[in-house]
Computed example of a mutant assay.
Amino acid sequence: MEVKRKPFQGVLNILSFNRHFYVFGLVALTLILTSHILFNWSNVLYSIILLSFIYGLTMPLIVSAYVYDFSGYYNFNWLKNLNLTDSKDTQILNINAGFDETSFIIKNLFPESDLKVFDFYNSKQHTEPAIIRARKVSLVYPNTQQIISNAIPLKDNSVDYIFLLSAVHEIRTQEEKVQFLKECHRVCKSTGSVIMVEHLRDFPNFVAFSIGFTHFFSKKTWKKAFKEAGFSSFNETKFTPFMSVFNSCP
């Protein structure tokens, strides 16, 4: 199945999934405008607060459009330098948190390989409103299997490549992240690798998402989690200033 993305689909997804944030932001913006009319407060202070709110509402959309609609993220050109093989003996695993935009693309890129898709979403543990809304419109790859994050139903050393694409940050606790990555380590072949793509809790993403950057985790946090899970390497490649591609081997 060929998946053709609509123009500005990435930024429209951000608007749709996080609409509660934008509703609250617009309400606050209306109150600011109204208060300036009713009360005689400093024009300088008013300008600073107004511009800050406008920045906070628009900058995430601008960056999201850049990353998800114009950077070529969904063309997977960033994957070429990893030199992954495609053969009938290659086992690929794509794990998501309930929103899957990549499995059909991965299958098109690796048509000979056997692709399995797992979804670790747990409504009691992963309670972000955005991911709940995203699940309602997500594509579902055939035979996608629901799992729990600390139990991947595959044999030891059976998978060549594990894709974790903008998904694992939905696991909010460090303990659960480590347990999940331990399972990835267990099922991954010694010659295989885990490819993870994430925004980071760093300065570029603070500039992009302001307080929203706390939804992501720092490189230090991820490095510690992979190390505790038993991985021997943790290599980062920047894909745009706002996204990192991590390639880790057992």
Rank of each mutant, 00 (worst) to 15 (best):
Q91F: 15
D69C: 05
L93E: 04
N96V: 11
N83A: 12
I62S: 00
N81A: 01
E101R: 10
N96Y: 05
Q91T: 13
Q91L: 04
Y55P: 09
W78F: 06
F104L: 12
S64D: 06
Y55I: 04
I95M: 12
G72N: 06
Y66G: 00
S103G: 11
N94F: 01
N96M: 10
I62H: 02
G72V: 02
I62T: 03
I105G: 02
S64G: 11
Y73W: 12
V67Y: 05
T58W: 03
K88V: 14
Q91K: 14
K107E: 14
N83W: 00
K80G: 00
D86M: 04
K107Y: 03
S103I: 13
I62G: 00
N94S: 15
G56H: 06
L84V: 03
D100G: 11
G98C: 05
E101Y: 05
Y68N: 14
D86C: 06
K88R: 15
L84C: 03
K107N: 08
Y73G: 03
L57E: 08
L93N: 05
M59I: 12
T58Q: 04
Y68L: 13
T85N: 08
V67F: 02
T85C: 00
N81P: 06
V67T: 10
G98N: 04
F99A: 10
L93Q: 02
Y74C: 00
K88M: 08
D86A: 09
T90N: 02
S71C: 03
W78H: 03
S64R: 11
I105W: 00
V63Q: 11
K88G: 15
G98W: 05
K88T: 14
L84K: 03
I106L: 15
Y68I: 07
V63T: 10
I62R: 04
F99K: 08
T102R: 06
